[in-house]
């Protein structure tokens, strides 16, 4: 397969987490708990609607040694963050 396709394969979320309606710090708490249940290398997709967390979650994930693959605005008040677990 092509390089592009391979990249997409590796970034395919194995788990989706809907934290719409939650505010900080529970947005990150929930995302962290979900990551703890996953294996290193697996990818998590987080759907959220709390604007502050759009910046905070990626930053906290990076601080914890995880890899943020993308942050997309998917609606008027909806975002999707994709994170790959790099360490336990």
């Amino acid at each position: 397969m092509g390089e592009e396709q391979k990249m997409q394969e590796e970034e395919k979320p194995v788990r989706k987490l809907d934290i719409k309606g939650l505010v900080c710090p529970y947005t990150f708490v929930k995302a962290k708990l979900a990551m703890e249940d996953m294996e290193v290398g697996e990818v998590l997709e987080i759907v959220l609607d709390y604007p502050e967390a759009v910046n905070n979650i990626p930053k906290s994930m990076q601080d914890h040694g995880q890899k943020v693959l993308k942050v997309d605005k998917t609606g008027d008040k909806e975002w999707v963050i994709v994170v790959r677990k790099e360490k336990d």
Binding site: P25, Y26, V29, K30, K32, L33, E36
Partner: peptide
Amino acid sequence: QVQRYSRHIILPEVGGK
């Protein structure tokens, strides 16, 4: 419990585990 222990859970050295 997620709320009660949230300040522990977000510590890398503690976490949910």
